[in-house]
Design a protein around this nucleic acid. Structure first.
Lengths: 347, 347
DNA sequence: CTGAAAGCGCTTACAG
DNA sequence: CTGAAAGCGCTTACAG
């Protein structure tokens, strides 16, 4: 019934309660004590507001106060646990601060990315979290121009404050586990990501660190940066298996999408993956339960998100700077059992 | 440099181009032809706007036009492919219409749900898609009161237009496949969801339809509605296996979260699931690759989303009404192979 | 203690 | 063809 045709405004409340718009505004914003407004008046106003079903128009308020209560996050896509986890922590932090969280994905497309960032900026988001942007410097400039505070997450921007995972350290640790678990004499192979890309390069470096420490040299043909499509990873695996009928026994998989490709391959060719051990720099509950030893490096989404909000909350003018968060080894009970068995089995 | 301290407004452009705010507005909105504005003037204005780095303040425009360009979607959470798929299609449809999509999750919590819906309403979203709400009637009333168009997705509202999956039909078909694939004499069991809940009840009915058609009666002890926590499903499976050392061979799993529980169980007790066949009313690429025959019923996210926008676009005053979308059987190549083998194996 | 008034940045009839 | 003016719904010094 109530708000069908016409929205209730503070003027309606003023009229109905025999006061003025100023008074209504003061009361409804809780600043009536500061302005020494009569408690009775305040009461009457709140009463009337409630009975009329008043709801403030945030758009109008924002126009006046220059705040929107909106905060934005831009992510590559929604289809994995890492981004989903980031989004959920971000939502929680936003709610804590009374902000309305907006999330938009780019599908890893530059044009889409620019267009969604422009939209968020035009919507006057108060700050922006950019997760693994395709074009960090470009959108950094857009934000700068709009005077909008922003953080880069997972991929550092040249000029923006950034929060990243310790990719090299994590990959090194993951590599060490892979070495420990792989059968002796195993071949090793790195799959996924994109050559020249920040995270991929660091993970390759960490992978190499681990192998080098064990006296194994990393050759170019042990690295297949086949991007983020599961099918591409699957194709690489098929090619590798075609050589000798079986996969290299020590597989380092760079992303959950590549892991998806591995999972499909495995389902079709279980025998080719007989003695394989997989290390994956990402996490997914189903992937963790594949029927072979799997070690996963899980990015610390809670800490990553918290670091972004710490920076945003501080409101310093600080440009640049970087916070690095350690990822965590994730081993399911089942895998722990398998890993333990595998360890005994190896000399 | 440019917009550092002060935003550029149409007044700045008017001054800089020697015109008026009205003209600037008309030009920038593309209605200059309609108003017969001199092409030269228009040119000059656009030029100036560009060089000043002008960006319209959508908040101010919205206050005037009573449009915000915002559309909202409320989902239970982000952690599975169904909701993620819905979100991605929704984003695409929103972009097509020049709208800025807002997505917020409730974590299946009533209070959170009400609070996020209130926030979206206060932000003046132009319409709202409510995915599997906890309290359909309550938030339906909130939207109604705010005069905001809305659709229920996946769970019908008593008074709202709704788009749902054909749960019973889908479950019946899934059940038929389960029967066809399970070894003869297999026991059947339904796991997951909540008793009394819309989708769960319909899926149980569909499951029963399939068994009944094969002359198998469904007893209460064949149904375990253990909710949406993977650990609960895992506990149920452990209990079932404890009885005879093995799982019922025909498992009907109601959600991907329950399937997660199954996946963990399987990793720990592969032998207990020896001859099992699993039918899951949900989809995930990793789950589809588990090392046993899996048939999944995948909800048609594209069609579900499209149906919501069709309704929203139509802008009829229609209350109520329901569109039902058929889900699709999803079988991976690996499972097709396994299923084929399984079929031959059974008498 | 409370009201009148200006102004946030736009759009859009209305004059001219 | 173009400008002056009103108004969207709020907030907040400023008077009184």
């Amino acid at each position: 019934m109530s708000g069908k045709k016409k929205r209730v405004t503070i003027y309606d409340i003023a009229k109905a309660s025999g006061t003025s718009a100023s008074t209504v505004s003061l009361v409804l914003n809780g600043s009536w004590e500061k302005y020494r407004i009569n408690a009775d008046t305040a009461d009457k106003v709140s009463q009337t507001a409630r009975s009329l079903g008043y709801r403030a128009n945030l758009r109008a308020r924002g126009l006046r106060t220059n705040r929107t209560g909106l905060i934005g996050m831009v992510i590559p896509h929604h289809r994995n646990r890492f981004f989903a986890g980031l989004v959920e922590h971000y939502e929680a932090e936003a709610h804590k601060r009374g902000l309305c969280p907006i999330v938009v994905s780019t599908q890893r497309n530059r044009e889409t990315e620019e267009s969604v960032v422009r939209t968020l900026l035009a919507q006057q988001v108060e700050s922006l979290i950019l997760v693994g942007p395709e074009n960090p410097d470009g959108i950094d400039a857009l934000c700068e121009e709009a005077g909008t505070r922003h953080v880069n997450l997972d991929l550092p921007g040249r000029n923006a404050f950034s929060v990243v995972t310790d990719n090299r350290g994590g990959a090194r640790e993951l590599g060490r586990h892979l070495l420990k678990l792989a059968p002796s004499g195993a071949e090793f192979h790195f799959i996924g990501g994109r050559q020249g890309e920040y995270a991929t390069d660091l993970r390759i470096a960490g992978f190499a660190d681990a192998l080098n420490a064990a006296g194994i040299a990393v050759r170019d043909d042990m690295i297949d940066c086949c991007g983020y499509h599961p099918e591409h990873a699957q194709a690489v695996l098929s090619r590798l298996a075609a050589r000798s009928g079986r996969l290299p026994a020590g597989l380092f998989i760079n992303s959950i999408t590549a892991m998806e490709g591995f999972s499909s391959f495995l389902a079709l060719n279980p025998e080719a993956a007989q003695d394989c051990v997989v290390a994956c720099f990402d996490w997914d509950p189903f992937a963790a339960c594949l029927p072979l030893p799997v070690v996963m490096m899980r990015q610390n989404v809670a800490a990553l998100t918290a670091a972004c909000f710490d920076y945003l909350d501080a409101k310093t003018g600080q440009k640049g700077g970087e916070v690095m968060i350690a990822p965590e080894l994730a081993v399911t009970p089942a895998n722990r059992r398998m890993l333990a068995a595998g360890k005994e089995g190896s000399p």
